[in-house]
């Protein structure tokens, strides 16, 4: 396990370095580059701009600038938001909870439903249920998440009036029940695509396991069908899903951003869009880097969990 841990950690560090290089590249695509915040100041002249550029070290060679930028990133100095003059990490931290809440609740829904649909599809292969689930998953993957959110708001908020159309809580309320009430629609909307993905993979994984010798052995020993399914099949089919959950993390984050914009959910996605609207580039860049780091961390954890359960992975 220690060897696997070191190897996997090293991989993550290498990836982190490349990710930061891509981020640095994007940063230099911003209009005016890192100087853009000063360009907006009234009465700014070219000479002053040049002087600031020199003070900020922007006339140094790019590799040096990159190292400087990366070093400050490592020390937690992610710059200051143009909009409210607060450190970028503080601003992101304020929006982290809402996004995580949305992601976790929709993941619970999608894993629960997706696992069930996938297993049932595999055990009742080519049945009406399996066929419907297959076609349904393909259609679910084709529906734009933001539009599905709009339809959800139209039906459940505007027409039926059952659920709130946006925000995370009612101002002046904020009880647990109130949070849950607001959480239902966005997390179901975000879950739709993930249920589709999860059920497809779960079906394949179950089919892979269901015909293996140890399952046949269990049946031959006279173990009940239900017990075979729950203990021998599902347990083993869920293993590759742990790695998959890690791999799906960037898509989940993308989906959360999309959902947040429709439901005015006060998370990182909403912050990202607001910052884009205000040309608040430090926050935009911060979120870009932060989300990528979150994904790398998620992948690392998923792989470590999978390896700690399954010796085949860590010994491979």
């Amino acid at each position: 396990m220690a060897g696997f841990l070191v190897k996997r950690l090293w991989q993550s560090i290498v990836l982190l370095i490349i990710v930061s290089m891509i981020g640095f590249g994007v940063l230099h695509l911003t209009p005016g580059g890192p100087l853009s915040q000063y360009a907006l100041t009234p009465g700014m002249t070219q000479e002053t701009m040049d002087r600031i550029a020199e003070q900020m070290g922007l006339n140094r060679p790019l590799p040096i600038q990159y190292l400087d930028w990366a070093w400050r990133l490592l020390q937690g100095d992610w710059g200051t938001s143009y909009r409210d003059q607060q450190p970028v990490l503080t601003v992101i931290g304020r929006h982290l909870f809402a996004t995580l809440l949305l992601m976790v609740s929709s993941t619970v829904i999608s894993i629960g439903l997706g696992t069930w649909i996938g297993i049932r599809g595999a055990t009742h292969r080519y049945s009406t249920f399996d066929y419907t689930a297959t076609v349904g998953a393909m259609i679910a993957l084709s529906i734009p998440t933001f539009w599905f959110g709009l339809v959800g708001i139209y039906v459940f908020s505007l027409k039926l009036g059952w659920l709130p159309a946006g925000n995370m809580y009612t101002i002046g309320d904020g009880s647990l029940l109130d949070y849950l009430h607001h959480l239902i629609l966005p997390s179901v909307v975000l879950a739709l695509v993930n249920i589709a993905i999860w059920s497809r993979y779960m079906r394949t994984a179950t089919l892979d396991v269901i015909n293996q010798d140890f399952v046949k052995t269990a049946r031959a020993k006279g173990v009940g069908e239900r017990r075979v399914l729950m203990k021998h099949v599902v347990g083993n089919a869920l293993l590759p899903m742990i790695t998959l959950a890690g791999m799906q993390l960037p898509n989940l984050l993308s989906g959360a951003l999309v959902t947040e914009t429709v439901f005015t959910w006060p998370g990182m996605g909403r912050l990202f869009l607001d910052s884009l609207g205000y040309n608040d580039y430090p926050v935009v860049m911060g979120l870009l880097m932060f989300s990528a780091i979150l994904v790398l961390l998620g992948n690392l954890i998923a792989d470590l969990v999978a390896a700690s359960i399954d010796p085949r992975i860590r010994l491979a």
Binding site: L15, I18, I22, L253, F272, L273, V284, L288, L296
Partner: peptide, 23 residues
């Protein structure tokens, strides 16, 4: 392939929106 992995680490919508806003 590490470059491929690194690009995959960015949630595509974040990267896309950042680029779309800058260009």
């Amino acid at each position: 392939m590490r470059f491929v992995d690194a690009f995959l680490a960015f949630p595509s919508i974040f990267l896309l929106l950042a680029l779309a806003a800058f260009i």
